[in-house]
């Protein structure tokens, strides 16, 4: 298997563009080396057209034994378990788990709030998406990246194989955080356009005026397996503000005059904690995997430790 760094080096030697070099800062060599050790763990197995490194619930021509069933006319004699017939006098057919490919969708929130401040949330979201997408590609999963944007969702065409990782990088690099968040509408568009069910990894700060539940529920109701990665910037809970200010929402532009006091900041921090707990409780109640990703946590720690310990990667 050709390593990603080799592919990357080949790409660079073949005369990559300046924008590619800029992307290197976000997806540099060290970043890419770590990706090769990761794998996505999915709690559900979906049927696929191609054999991949995932076990499917469909019994088929795989190599790993799954079960027996009684022989019926038309079954392939090669799968009859003659040892059982000799002991029990019954014709039983061996069933094998068939390995199939998995559709993995990465839904990236590209609203203005993701780029708030110095854009660390959006960068973190893109790096996580890139990492997870690479792992999916490496396992021959069908990887699709969808950008949830205010003017509709844009997507990177479904691809497979880690040689396609630069398409992922290029797509992610071209994304800009702008516009309002409406997860419900954007995810509805996504569901309508993607009939093949699979793992839907929603990467967002979940700042949705219409409610963060809408988008997740749409995925649930349409048989996708939602996996929510909540990008969290703790500084947003304790803004460095004092005195008389006019606050303005970076997406909707809604404004309000307010006098910031220590008490108000304390209440704001408490409201932020309540909001996070609300999300957590909702996901737990809905059996949706929820993972808060702090932007202050280094990418290495986040991917190699937190995700692995959290059962997301192995």
């Amino acid at each position: 298997m050709m390593k990603l760094t080799e592919l990357f080096q080949r790409s660079r030697s073949s005369g990559a563009s300046k924008s590619r070099k800029k992307a290197d800062l976000l997806f540099d060599d060290a970043f890419q080396r770590k990706l090769e050790t990761l794998a996505i763990v999915s709690r559900r197995v979906f049927a696929g057209r191609l054999k991949a490194e995932r076990r499917s619930s469909k019994r088929g021509s795989g190599v790993e034994f799954a079960d027996h069933r009684e022989y019926t006319a038309g079954d392939d004699f090669r799968f009859v378990d003659w040892n059982v017939y000799q002991r029990l006098g019954k014709l039983l057919v061996r069933l094998y788990e068939e390995e199939e490919d998995l559709s993995v969708y990465f839904l990236i929130d590209c609203s203005s709030s993701m780029g708030f401040g110095d854009g660390r949330k959006f960068d973190q979201a893109r790096r996580l998406a890139a990492a997870l997408a690479y792992v999916g590609l490496a396992k021959l999963d069908r990887v699709t990246i969808v950008a949830l944007q205010a003017d509709g969702s844009s997507r990177m065409p479904t691809t497979r194989g880690k040689g396609q990782v630069f398409k992922v990088f290029d797509f992610l690099r071209g994304l800009q955080p702008e516009g309002e968040t409406d997860l419900g509408a954007r995810v509805t568009q996504f569901v309508a356009a993607h009939k093949r069910r699979g793992l839907a990894v929603l990467i967002s700060d979940l700042y949705d005026p219409q409610g963060f539940e809408n988008g997740i529920n749409v995925l649930r109701y349409n048989k996708f397996e939602p996996y929510v990665i909540h990008i969290v910037d703790p500084t947003e809970a304790i803004p460095r503000l004092q005195g008389d200010v006019q606050i303005r929402d970076c997406e909707t532009g809604a404004s309000r005059e307010v006098t910031v006091t220590d008490g108000l900041l304390r209440r704001l921090a408490q409201a932020m904690r309540d909001y996070h707990q609300e999300i957590d409780r909702f996901c737990a109640r809905s059996q949706v995997t929820y993972f808060p990703a702090d932007v202050n946590t280094s990418f290495d720690e986040l991917v190699l430790n937190v995700f692995r310990h959290g059962g997301f990667l192995r």
């Binding site: 709030s113 708030f116 401040g117 700060d205 700042y207 005026p209 910037d233 947003e236 803004p239 503000l241 005195g243 008389d244 200010v245 006019q246 606050i247 303005r248 929402d249 970076c250 909707t252 809604a254 404004s255 309000r256 005059e257 307010v258 108000l264 209440r267 704001l268 409201a271 932020m272 909001y275």
Partner: peptide, 15 residues
């Protein structure tokens, strides 16, 4: 007043 952008105004509204 000084104009300050916030990422999610509804949280402020609650407060």
């Amino acid at each position: 007043r000084r104009r300050v952008f916030v990422p999610f105004a509804p949280l402020w509204q609650r407060v």
